[in-house]
Computed example of a mutant assay.
Amino acid sequence: MFLGTYAPKLDDKGRVILPAKFRDELSGGLVITRGQERCLYVFTEREFENVHEKIRQAPVSNKQARDFLRVFLSGASQERPDNQHRVTIPATLRDYANLGRDLTIIGAGSRAEIWDTETWNAYYESTEAAFSDTDEEVIPGLF
């Protein structure tokens, strides 16, 4: 499970060092793809296969499902960490997420997310109040 918040830097070659707590889980390979709110999702290869299978079950006749599948999968990139635990983020994904040098990587349970730090800070600030107000209707049985 991916948990926590980390602040690595993007190097000049578009690589990022994976947070130490994520390395074991991602060492066998990972998939980076477009996420919602202009971040990047990082899945283990196995979890990505699970997500893909769920997407495939949506009816092809549903335009919203087709659109989601196209955007989600067309940006996907299989990566393998190097010996220094770095992964390359492809230029198209860096552009999509508007990544600068300062990154924020968060654990989001079944995936990690990579954010430009300024974008993450703005997102967090704008959603923190709503987080405080979340009730049981949003996530049934949580509390």
Rank of each mutant, 00 (worst) to 15 (best):
R101D: 15
A108V: 11
Q36C: 10
A7W: 10
I114F: 08
L30M: 14
I106W: 07
I89C: 02
E79H: 04
D135L: 06
Y96G: 00
F68M: 03
Q84T: 08
R34Q: 13
E45L: 11
Y6S: 08
R38D: 09
L26Q: 01
M1F: 07
F131V: 12
V42M: 13
A20W: 06
G4I: 08
I105S: 00
W115A: 04
A130E: 14
F43T: 06
A97P: 04
G109L: 06
L30K: 05
F72Y: 04
R34W: 10
V16G: 00
L3G: 06
Y41Q: 10
H52E: 12
E37Y: 14
L30R: 04
D95R: 05
A129E: 15
E47S: 11
T33L: 07
L99P: 04
S126Y: 12
H52I: 06
V31W: 08
R56N: 13
G141S: 08
V42P: 09
V31Q: 06
T127G: 03
T104K: 08
N121R: 09
E53G: 09
A122D: 14
Y123E: 04
L69Q: 13
E53R: 15
G4L: 10
Y124N: 08
F22E: 01
L3I: 12
R38K: 14
I55S: 10
Q78E: 15
H52F: 10
P140A: 01
L10P: 01
Y124S: 07
T134E: 04
R15H: 06
D135S: 10
N62F: 06
F2Q: 00
L3R: 14
R86Y: 00
Y123K: 09
F72H: 01
T33Y: 06
E128V: 15
E125I: 01
L93C: 00
G35T: 05
E136I: 11
A58G: 14
W115P: 02
